[in-house]
């Protein structure tokens, strides 16, 4: 699959202070990538450098193979973006606002304008003045203007800010549609981790200007490593059995920790290879432990995000 965005050793320094430090990642065609990070982590600065709104101190950004440093004009042709809040002329209608940008691009026709407005669900309000729009409508119009030049890459900074749950859901739906149907790659930053988890195929985590983690969403689904929670009657015996189990030939057992539950049971969270599950259950039974439940444990993106960021010594 084609690489649409290639961020190479991107660094931003302002007055000697490093804001973004040696960030590198690629985005493939039709891929949705979530850019995560606490406030002030350097997400928006990274995005601004990607779209050419901020000067790159070192490194490079290539959009569809074209460098933002040496082929700025051509690279910009394949890029649509909404950075920070979508901004419009409040005294013009939604249609006239879109026409302002559409006239700047030869490849964007009036029909295409109406098509993108319909895709993001703002077609019904195009005749209204933007000054009367709600934040959600402005967000939609912002994405519509970004799509006007038929970009290969869409960069969206917090597009779900201020949206109600229905608006968030709709945004997710049409962004997926844009990626699937138009083959547009999307880089999206958001604090709504649950939404990113449902929308993005991959996440990139930035903290203190550095890329600290990059992971496919749903990696664990295809993996043979399982996270399980066992409900047992005897924590002590279970612990002993698990210690013996992990101390032996099965090195994949990563953690064991008991938590008391109502009704005299204990919950133990473990991570192990799928093929070892029957052996573990047999070991526990042989140790005289009653197993009441074996539950698959799901680690949310939020949990992972906190794990990644706390590892680096700072939590948002």
């Amino acid at each position: 699959m084609n690489t649409i965005l290639s961020v190479q050793h991107l660094t931003k320094k302002i007055k000697g202070k490093t804001i973004v430090n040696d960030v590198s990642f690629d985005v493939l065609a039709g891929e949705i990538v979530g850019l995560l990070g606490a406030n002030g982590a350097g997400k928006t600065t990274t995005m601004k450098m990607i779209v050419g709104l901020s000067k790159i101190s070192s490194g490079d950004v290539k959009i569809a193979g074209r460098s933002m440093k040496t082929e700025f004009s051509k690279a910009l042709d394949d890029l649509g973006a909404v950075i920070e809040a979508p901004a419009f002329y409040p005294y013009l209608s939604g249609y006239e606002n879109l026409r302002q940008y559409q006239r700047l691009h030869k490849k964007a026709s009036k029909d295409w304008l109406l098509e993108v407005a319909s895709l993001v669900g703002i077609d019904h309000a195009l005749k209204q003045r933007v000054g009367t729009y709600s934040l959600g409508m402005k967000q939609r119009l912002g994405i519509a203007q970004a799509l006007l030049k038929k970009p290969k890459l869409l960069v969206l900074d917090e597009p779900m800010n201020g949206l109600d749950p229905a608006g968030v859901r709709e945004t997710r739906t049409y962004l997926n549609q844009i990626a699937d149907e138009l083959g547009v790659s999307v880089v999206i930053s958001s604090h709504q981790l649950a939404e990113i988890e449902q929308m993005a195929g991959r996440v990139i985590v930035i903290q203190q200007g550095c890329l600290i983690a990059e992971q496919q969403i749903g990696d664990e689904a295809g993996s043979s490593v399982l996270q399980l929670t066992l409900h047992v009657n005897d924590a002590e015996r279970a612990g002993k059995a698990l210690t013996e189990f992990s101390g032996g030939i099965h090195r994949s057992l990563k953690s064991k920790q008991a938590e008391q539950l109502p009704g005299g049971l204990y919950a133990i969270a473990i991570t192990l290879e799928e093929e070892q599950v029957p052996k573990l259950i047999r070991s526990l039974c042989e140790a005289g432990v009653d197993i009441h439940r074996v539950l698959p444990a799901h680690t949310s993106l939020e949990d992972k995000f906190l794990e990644w960021t706390t590892k680096r010594g700072e939590v948002s």
């Binding site: 050419g52 920070e84 002329y89």
Partner: peptide, 18 residues
């Protein structure tokens, strides 16, 4: 100055390389 007031300058820059 309207471009600064409405915050549309960034958007305009994203649509024009010149």
């Amino acid at each position: 100055t309207d471009e600064y007031q409405y915050g549309t300058l960034k958007q305009l820059f994203l649509h024009s390389s010149s």
